[in-house]
Design a binder for these strands. Structure first.
Lengths: 339, 339
DNA sequence: GTTATGTCCTTAATCGTTTAAGCTGCAGGG
DNA sequence: CCCTGCAGCTTAAACGATTAAGGACATAAC
């Protein structure tokens, strides 16, 4: 491998000069700089990130914590687009990303240890068990952290507007004349809590009372569970006219249950999802859903983290809310005409 | 940060002793080793991967090249599960993974440069334009490379048995009585070529002649294109009784087209996908498809790469074929009974 | 008693880069 | 002609680890 030493030798200057020339320092003559740049190019020089990191204590590496309480992992289109946006924003700033796990070599360690071992400049916690002591430890460490969809005081959080999103979605459903709306939510994370409150807020606003039997706990990203719960809901004496699912993917299970019962969407019952993943637009009928701004969610968390790394003293706006938008789809029928 | 120096100081030994003790070298007394291990633990020592990499020229980092000729990128369930398997296999061997792109800092460079900059020990090319000169350059470089689903002579390739898979799938469809089978394939990559040959092989074996108008070029992972092509196929005077799609995801487009035409799957026409992503099992009717062994594909490519890195002189079996299995689903109807 | 053997440790060099501090020579001011 | 200032370089130390080579001491062998 060609190092600065080779260039220095070739150009008859010291290694320090090469380093400064290549890094655009000011105390290098224009002629020398040219020659060095040229030689570097000619010899095919590549910087050695390890050496640089060792000296500067900056790796230009971002850690990404991506566990999977929501099932589906990278296969979850929501997370994969967030990750892709993180990656792309990081890349355009010269950062690479490293997945953080609990092992170094064969030995079990902590997330924090892994971060220190790799010397990541900062970490994005995109999905994890936020109650895990190891996560807390990481959040409270010296390493800059940005969390997505969860708030830790004193840290930067980029959160999707789950409350507002669900409120708007519910508003829309109600505007279509629905009053008997069932709500299958995911596990009780802060995401779920927020969506629930958005849902109830909308209902109250419109003077609609939702019976308890309409609100069920399901599982994120799990069509099977939604299938069963939907069956139950369909079996109620007073059946809902619309069901809101934990997410677009799990919604598929609900849709199947409806079909199997000999009913049709949206003629007999309406269905709404959440996330707005591409899948929601290719199924038929097109899903009514809240489209989370996953790209922005990923982009901003990377951007804010990098900002924080590069100017640590900048005033921290410690919470940013990313809004999405509604996608009107044929899966929610307009029954307001019927009186 | 605590370094070996701190431990050495605390224990009254040299840094070298600490290094050797922590790395399990043989020439350290048991008592000393204990003391050092203890102290390391107590002080919260974490190794510095940059320093280690600098000295040893090993980073325990694998590069992953994951471009996107097939559309959908990480959101493509096929690739995301492959990636997840790579990651998990890498992790259990103490490796982290780094996405390889063409930029370092702000400057545009090559994949190879990026690999060298980060000092990755090896690279897995999971999805890329294999004709790209930059890819060729990387493959021919000093860095160990494993390619997935593409063969470069002299390199290790882990390939999914596209020919055999499609042959088996077609055998199955034919066994159900179908003779008029349409085939929408993806862009002309080696994957497509192999699947085509598997398809034709099965047809010939069974003495079935496929008219040219039944074989169409679609686009991977793109329901829209399959939607249009399916419409065309449905409009033929001599309509096929079964359509094979480029993959499960794009199949959705075809299914929609069928529905829209007032036909039903599988009663009026059958449909088969390829990949066997989870989606294929949750839609209704359950898809008949070839389930690629994505986990094994990812796991093995990581495992083989690591093996190659750690014992470069081991005999290279330069090609491994990973087989999947068929998933029988209601989307292909048994019409053999009808004579 | 001398030599060999082995154990356990230290010394010192090295990986490739950055950077504070110092040196050199020339130009301009006085 | 001397001093100052500056541009443009070099020197040297440092980052944190690894590792070949060597040293000290104890024990065993003859």
């Amino acid at each position: 491998m060609i190092s600065m030493k080779d260039i220095a030798l070739e150009c008859g200057v010291s290694v320090a000069t090469v380093s400064k020339a290549l890094n655009g320092q000011q105390d290098i003559g224009e002629e020398t700089r040219q020659k060095i740049a040229e030689t570097a190019e000619r010899l095919g020089y590549t910087a050695n990130s390890a050496a640089r990191a060792l000296k500067t204590n900056k790796t230009f590496n971002l850690g990404v914590l991506f566990l999977d309480p929501m099932h589906g992992g990278l296969a979850h289109e929501f997370f994969s687009t967030v990750l892709d946006a993180i990656r792309s924003e990081a890349e355009s700033n010269g950062y690479d990303i490293t997945f953080i796990n609990r092992g170094i070599g064969n030995r079990e360690t902590s997330y924090l240890q892994h971060c220190r071992y790799r010397g990541v400049d900062g970490v994005i916690i995109a999905s994890a068990d936020f109650a895990d002591p190891q996560i807390i430890e990481l959040v409270n460490s010296e390493i800059p952290v940005v969390t997505i969809d969860h708030i830790f005081n004193g840290n930067i959080s980029i959160i999707s507007d789950n409350t507002g999103g669900m409120e708007t979605l519910t508003d829309y459903i109600i505007s279509k004349g629905h009053k008997k709306i069932a709500f299958i939510h995911g596990e009780k994370t802060s995401v779920t809590v927020n969506r629930l409150s958005g849902f109830y807020r909308s209902c109250e606003k419109h003077g609609i009372k939702i019976p308890d039997e309409y609100v069920r706990e399901g599982v994120f990203h799990d069509p099977k569970t939604c299938y069963s719960i939907t069956k139950e809901l369909l079996g109620l004496k007073d059946r809902p006219t619309c069901i809101v699912f934990p997410d677009d993917y799990s919604c598929i299970g609900g849709i199947n249950a409806v079909w199997e019962s000999g009913l049709r969407i949206p003629d007999d019952i309406s269905a709404a999802g959440y996330d707005g993943i591409p899948l929601s637009r290719i199924i038929s009928p097109e899903l009514t859903t809240w489209v989370q701004n996953t790209t922005e969610l990923g982009r901003r968390s990377a951007a804010r983290l990098i900002e924080q790394i590069q100017k640590p003293k900048s005033v921290i706006l410690d919470r940013e809310i990313v809004r999405g938008h509604i996608q009107e789809g044929a899966s929610v029928k307009d029954i307001s005409q019927l009186g």
